[in-house]
Write a protein that binds this DNA or RNA. Structure first.
Lengths: 193, 193
DNA sequence: CGAATTTCCGAACCGATCGTTCCATGTTAG
DNA sequence: CTAACATGGAACGATCGGTTCGGAAATTCG
């Protein structure tokens, strides 16, 4: 292989697929290597451990999510639609990523620390985005928010509240309706009457 | 518990859900029992082994499939739509059940024998259904089939042929288009011109 | 071409996991 | 109260799975 980084990327992509289906624990190095048509021990030439692959995958997915979110915001004009798009994409993505978190919540675990690191960094970014969305809507006269800082935090709290049952519940059938409910609540409390 | 059979049914339902997601190997007795809010060893009061649960689940799913197929046929009138519905539901269901088969194809295995038993019985049923569908379409002047017996077998062979990559390939994106292709092939060779 | 370096893998190690058994305890029916 | 039913904690033996190690292939370079 000419480029070692390129192969690391292929491992991440493949592992991501398997992790997202089976979670961290149930995914074996054997499976990852088999999907790459390589020997089990060959993977260790590129990553020191299974955990390291997992970390790389989570980082990759986080960047993926970030990109999806920015495009979701850009593709509509009105502040209301921007916020709506943002929340929908965010929750949908988190539903997809819930397997990673299930893996983490499974038992022990030391990932917890790592996840929390990613998490807190992402939380700050999210807060900034929400604040911006609120601010723009405000100055355009669509929203009516006094303290965009605290309102953003309140919205984020609601979103986080919606994450929890995501990792508990069996069915995702009512995610959409719950999302709609939360959105209408947010908007009715936010939209200028 | 008043009814032991009722509880066996609950176990089957729960196990079915987990099996269909993780396959036989990756599903643990621990998980099944936890989902039922029971101790791991309690399950053994109702089933002698993990394999026995698996067999019960497969039988249950087979009956489920049979019911879906008959309703799929009944809900439309024209023979062409009946056959189309049948094939669609059949292939979709098999896609969903592919996890079971993946579990079987995983390693060893003695399930193979059991699966084959179920399988051959089901094959005969399917052949009868196909033959009937062809016969009805024939007598209504929609199809033009000489030997419904052998034509049914030919169609079944095609369907079986479509199953194989189901258990290989990574993506199911093109299942629909492949299904359409097969259908149009079947119909253009069958419909009265 | 040969040597150096990169890439790959089979085999083995060993701790963790998993299916199953055993037994003691709780629960219900008569 | 007793007997049958139902439960789950603990332990066991087998397998699995992540990781290491040594060296074979393959590739690159002089």
């Amino acid at each position: 292989m000419v480029d070692k980084e390129e192969y690391r990327r292929r491992i991440i992509l493949t592992a991501s697929r398997i992790f997202s289906h089976y979670g961290f624990r149930k995914t074996t190095m054997e499976e990852i290597s088999r999907a790459l048509h390589k020997g089990k021990s060959s993977i260790y030439y590129y990553f020191a451990s299974k955990e390291e692959i997992f970390e790389a995958v989570v980082l990759y997915e986080a960047n993926q999510l970030r990109r999806q979110l920015t495009t979701a915001i850009k593709e509509v004009e009105s502040p209301k639609e921007k916020l709506r798009n943002y929340i929908f994409v965010r929750m949908k993505s988190f539903a997809k990523l819930s397997n990673y978190y299930n893996a983490v919540f499974d038992k022990n675990l030391d990932h917890y620390e790592f996840i929390e690191k990613i998490r807190s960094r992402y939380d700050r970014e999210e807060l900034a985005i929400l604040r911006l969305l609120l601010y723009v809507g405000n100055s355009r006269g669509v929203f009516e928010v006094r303290e965009s800082e605290y309102t953003a935090m309140a919205i984020q709290t609601m979103l986080k509240g919606m994450e929890v049952p995501l990792f508990w519940r069996r069915r995702e059938i009512d995610i959409n309706s719950r999302l709609e409910a939360v959105l209408s609540l947010i908007f009715d409390g936010i939209l200028k009457r």
